[in-house]
């Protein structure tokens, strides 16, 4: 080894020492900052697409530190850290975000993770996953109180009530009660939605009749059942159409082509969270659905449609 090398080595050693000291200092500073932050500003983790939407609608998004994978709206929510699938939360992962509040629906889990989160003193505001306008109002109340913005909550609620009332008036004035068949085809076999599902609630809110009923939850679509149901309109999600490979593929499902809706190619799609989320865009979604399912020209768009954004 020559002199120059050893000089360089020593120099590098000094630099390394300095860099480490700096990194250590930054770490201390960062931790201190984190401590201050957790003592002051509320840090909210939202587990549920509709809850996240409400947080944004209230203008409380500054408090949000993370969301789950169902929080797809608005776009800003997509940029936040993800705590994963709502039913498979990691207790330590969520805790690492130093949350002061977790907003969750009854679907969040697993139970053990929620228990552990509660045990470490994190507040969890849980709301029901029921599909109704009343439950939406309740969610707004709960979220607004939890994020400390009760006034904004009341304002949002008032607006929602007014909007849904307007939609209802329009619907009440319509003479037709179309029979609507909702098809879920995100993965595996296509399924139709019976009583108690989000789609069933939406069809009813929009003044339609669920073409299949008499059973709870979802059931695989069969050719004969589809013909028997004989819907006027087929309703599905934008994601579902994409997953199945387009409207033609959807209509080629056994039996669907023989229904009134199939023959007339009356298929309409709406973005899944918008249609089924029961979030603050509910009145808007109800109105859009009510209008489009009565529109004789209704047919699925061949291009991807982005759902209209509500004014926050």
């Amino acid at each position: 080894m020559n002199l120059r090398d050893s000089y360089d080595d020593r120099f590098r050693g000094v630099r390394k020492g300095r860099r480490m000291r700096f990194a250590f200092g930054a770490l201390i500073f960062g931790l201190a900052l984190l401590g201050v932050a957790s003592a002051q500003a509320p840090r909210v983790v939202s587990v549920g697409g509709s809850l996240t939407e409400i947080v944004y609608a209230l203008g409380a998004e500054k408090q949000l530190v993370a969301v789950d994978t169902t929080s797809l709206y608005p776009d800003a929510a997509l940029k936040l850290p993800k705590v994963g699938y709502a039913r498979q939360l990691s207790a330590e992962g969520v805790l690492a975000l130093r949350p002061t509040l977790i907003l969750a629906t009854s679907e969040a889990g697993p139970p053990n993770a929620l228990e552990q989160l509660r045990a470490t003193g994190v507040k969890i505001e849980s709301t029901s996953a029921e599909h109704s306008f009343d439950e939406l109002r309740n969610k707004v109340k709960v979220v607004a109180a939890a994020v400390g913005m009760p006034d904004a909550g009341r304002a949002l609620e008032t607006k929602l009530v007014a909007d849904i009332a307007e939609a209802s008036r329009w619907i009440a004035a319509q003479p037709s009660r179309p029979r609507v068949l909702f098809i879920l085809s995100h993965s595996g076999a296509a399924q139709v939605s019976g009583d108690g599902t989000a789609a069933d609630a939406m069809i009813k809110l929009a003044g339609g009749v669920n073409a299949v009923s008499g059973f709870k939850g979802y059931k695989p679509l069969t050719a004969e059942a589809a013909i028997g149901a004989n819907p006027d309109v087929i309703l599905t999600t934008t994601q579902g159409v994409a997953a199945i490979g387009g409207i033609d593929k959807l209509l080629s499902q056994p039996g669907l082509g023989l229904t009134a809706a199939g023959k007339a190619r009356r298929v309409l799609d709406m973005e899944a969270l918008y249609l089924l989320g029961f979030g603050p865009r509910l009145p808007q979604a109800v109105r859009e659905l009510a209008k489009r399912m009565r529109d004789p020209q209704t047919a699925v768009a061949t291009t991807a449609r982005t759902s209209p954004s509500p004014a926050p």
Partner: peptide, 25 residues
Amino acid sequence: LAYIATDTQLRLLTFWTLGSLGSAN
């Protein structure tokens, strides 16, 4: 069962078949 399951149930089933130590207490 997977055939009659909803998306959510299917998802839970998939997660179950991939295992997790998340139940630890």
